[in-house]
């Protein structure tokens, strides 16, 4: 694991990518810090961090697109996956390398609040809980990016898809507001989602029985719940999409609302996508 970790870290800092990532991230934080704290005179550093999260859109794909796609393209995956290191440890090594590059930038960001403190009262608690959430949010996006990179051998495709997925999570708040709240419509949309899940199951597993069982369980559950209490479905769409909204949870931190469940939410997503990456690689062994 250490070998892979060191190799990836070296790869980021012998090419320009690692430096560019850290530099851009710091530029964005610097610009927003100047705008919010210096020009507009707010004492809350969390505003600067909050505005920067939008730029994960550009920064995360930059780092994650090559992480697995490049290995496949160059056929170097034949070296690492035939070495006596397990797939789990290889993926973890790579993920920790991604996080380390990001952590370098975050550590530098941590210097801002004490510096600001020289010019007035800064709330350290709000600043650092927000920075911690910022770090975990970044880690979540990195895990998603790594998963997407494992699905393809084209770095461009990985970058574009990661960009789209992060864009979707950013737009989700806006979309949720527009969703209808009626229970009949909610059932229809949820049934469509159940159908899509069944199709994805079939594409991934090519197993008719599993697909049919999945579809029956999902549809049966939904229809059953609807018959039992249809009012339960009022506003359920907004709720379901709200769970997926990675970014909306972050918005509360800048007001000083530190929600432990949000930290746990981000950590769970990191674990989930690292796990999915490992499964994607294992699945590839069967197909290729």
């Amino acid at each position: 694991m250490l070998a892979i970790y060191k190799k990836e870290l070296r790869a980021y800092f012998t090419s320009l990518i690692g430096y560019l990532f850290v530099a851009f991230l710091l530029v964005f934080v610097g610009v927003f810090q100047y705008r919010h704290n210096l020009v507009n005179g707010y004492a809350n550093f969390a505003y600067a961090v909050n505005s920067t999260t939008t730029f994960f859109l550009l920064l995360v794909p930059m780092l994650t697109m090559r992480i697995l796609a490049e290995e496949k393209k160059q056929r170097t995956d034949q070296l690492i996956f035939t070495s006596p290191v397990s797939i789990e440890r290889i993926i973890l090594g790579k993920y920790f390398a991604l996080i380390t590059v990001f952590a370098i930038a975050v550590v530098i960001i941590c210097i801002y609040p004490p510096v600001l403190h020289n010019y007035g009262a800064t709330n350290y608690a709000i600043a650092y809980t927000t920075i911690a959430a910022f770090f975990l949010l970044g880690c979540t996006y990195m895990a998603i990016g790594m998963f997407i990179s494992a699905l393809t051998e084209s770095q461009v495709f990985a970058a574009v898809l990661t960009f789209m997925v992060i864009l979707f999570t950013l737009m989700l708040d806006m979309l949720v507001e527009m969703l209808p709240t009626g229970h009949m419509l909610a059932l229809v949309v949820l049934l469509i989602i159940a159908f899509v899940i069944a199709v994805i199951t079939y594409v991934m597993m090519k197993n008719k029985i599993v697909t049919v069982v999945t579809a029956l369980v999902l549809v049966g559950g939904l229809v059953g719940a609807y018959c039992y209490d249809s009012l339960m479905f009022d506003g359920s769409l907004a709720k379901v999409f709200g769970w997926l909204s990675i970014n909306s949870r972050f918005q509360l931190f800048k007001y000083g609302i530190c929600n432990i469940s949000s930290y746990i939410y981000y950590l769970s997503l990191c674990v989930l996508f690292v796990f999915l990456t490992i499964q994607a690689i294992k699945k590839r062994r069967w197909e290729a």
């Binding site: 070998a3 070296l79 690492i80 070495s83 006596p84 290191v85």
Partner: peptide, 8 residues
């Protein structure tokens, strides 16, 4: 050298 680390 990386390979030697990888192969333990």
């Amino acid at each position: 050298f990386f390979c030697s680390q990888l192969k333990e």
